[in-house]
Simulated scan of single mutants.
Amino acid sequence: MTPAARLQTSIEILDAIAAAAREGGAPADAIFAEAMRARRYAGSKDRRAIRAHVYDAIRAARSAPASGRAAMLALVDVQPDLAALFDGSGYGPAPITDDEARAETGLAAGALIDLFDALVGEDEHEAMLARAPLDLRANRIKSSQGDLSHLFPDGEAIPGAPDGWRLPPETAAVQHPGYAEGRFEVQDAASQYASAALDTAAGQAIVDLCAGGGGKTLAIASLTGNDAEILACDTNRARLQQLQPRAERAGATRVETRLLNPGQERAMLDDWQGRADRVFVDAPCSGSGTWRRSPELRWRLTPARLDRHRADQAKLIDIGADLVAPGGKLLYAVCSIITREGRAQVDDFLNRHPGWTADAGYLPEGIGRAAGAGFLLTPGHDGCDGFFLARLTSPC
């Protein structure tokens, strides 16, 4: 493909991504993958160039643009060399005219920025859209951070994460034989900090209430040396089904999965009521802390969607609290930097549940900042995804 043809393809893919963002359709990665399958003639260099154009344009546009061309024109203002590719050639985009509209640029719409936690200032904005590194977590059942340093000598240790190893963005770590052998998982440092903050130990009974594909479930199994009873739950069958083969690869033999029906979670967890030593509630949220990885999420968040997330979070933290044994602990976590999903959500929980208390001092030194009854991690301050977490102890 010519450089101009690559740019035109990028514009067409951006059209589809913007439409999906407005309509609640497929995520950008899925749309990009499907577009590349439809263009099998595109070589690896073409795919890399197109992907770079697409994601650079997404990062440039603060909200869903009117068209992919409008997003790309906003990128031209940042990368002026691209203007020459609007040459009107057979497979290239039409020349730029003086009166063409451009997408608005910036981190996000002002109304969305107003929702951020007070700790997230303008000094954080650039880091929130920068390309994220690739973080690995050594699986203690089979490996160690030292092993990762030998497998990937170009990496570096992640501060405060004894199992963590950081590599440059888009490193093909999953192609390494060590991944198939279960020696490590790809996991951002924020998730590693959160898993460790649960304060697990061998012999405990542990529930991961919103397990999804099981990233944090496997981190818990690693931290407990495969010597804890772990129940991993979710209402999404497709995501939960990913966990069992991952657990087998990791050697995590004490993980049980349980698919829950929405609205029937309490009844389906009746055998765990008041029994768990630890409960992890990694609740569904806006994903505002993960814009480095999924920048199109800025285009998707609406007040209605945020309200739905808030309601789900409150429901799930209450369900999780019912599972905790007297004196046990619950860790509430969201990959969000929005106050209503973080500190405000935990304040509401503590008001609803007299006797529960918020813990302190469970993050590595220098990691996170106090945010109400919990802690906030941010890309600029902590070098990881944005994350709010709070560890809560039930009354004895």
Rank of each mutant, 00 (worst) to 15 (best):
G203H: 01
D312W: 14
G374R: 10
L73F: 06
L260Y: 08
A26M: 12
R69V: 03
N226K: 04
S336Y: 05
G355A: 09
T290S: 12
H353F: 02
R40T: 13
D359S: 14
I367A: 08
N226F: 00
G182L: 09
R300S: 05
D117E: 14
G106Y: 02
G327W: 05
G106M: 09
E365H: 14
D98T: 15
A19S: 13
R278Y: 03
A325Q: 10
I141F: 12
V279I: 08
L115P: 11
V324P: 02
D46E: 02
D46Q: 00
L223K: 00
H176C: 07
T339F: 00
M268N: 10
L323N: 08
V120C: 02
P245I: 07
R343V: 13
D98N: 11
G368A: 03
A371P: 08
M268T: 11
A118E: 12
I17C: 07
D208V: 07
G213Q: 10
H353S: 08
A314Y: 01
I338C: 09
V255Q: 06
F349A: 04
G383A: 01
L389I: 06
G68V: 01
R62M: 11
G368D: 10
A127Q: 09
A219V: 04
D322V: 00
A232T: 00
K315I: 11
G212T: 03
I338R: 02
S336H: 01
G24W: 06
L259M: 01
I338Y: 00
A201H: 12
K142T: 14
V76Q: 00
R47E: 02
W165Y: 06
A360S: 13
I338L: 15
G215Y: 11
K45H: 13
V186A: 11
A127C: 02
R48A: 14
L231Q: 04
L297G: 11
D77Q: 08
H150P: 03
A101C: 07
A157F: 09
R102C: 13
A118M: 09
S394H: 09
L75D: 02
P245Q: 10
H125E: 15
M268D: 11
A130Q: 14
D117L: 03
S143P: 07
E229T: 12
G182T: 12
S191M: 00
D46Y: 07
A370F: 06
L377I: 02
C233L: 07
D77L: 01
Q79C: 11
V207N: 02
A71Y: 04
E248Y: 13
G155D: 12
I206E: 05
G215E: 09
A71W: 00
A49G: 15
L260W: 03
A189P: 10
R62A: 12
P65E: 11
G110K: 14
Y55D: 09
G366A: 05
A138V: 08
P245F: 04
V54P: 06
M1F: 01
D234T: 02
E365W: 10
S222A: 14
I319K: 04
A70I: 05
A111W: 15
A189D: 05
A16L: 13
F184E: 10
A33T: 10
V334R: 00
R137I: 10
I13V: 13
R131H: 15
K142I: 06
I367D: 11
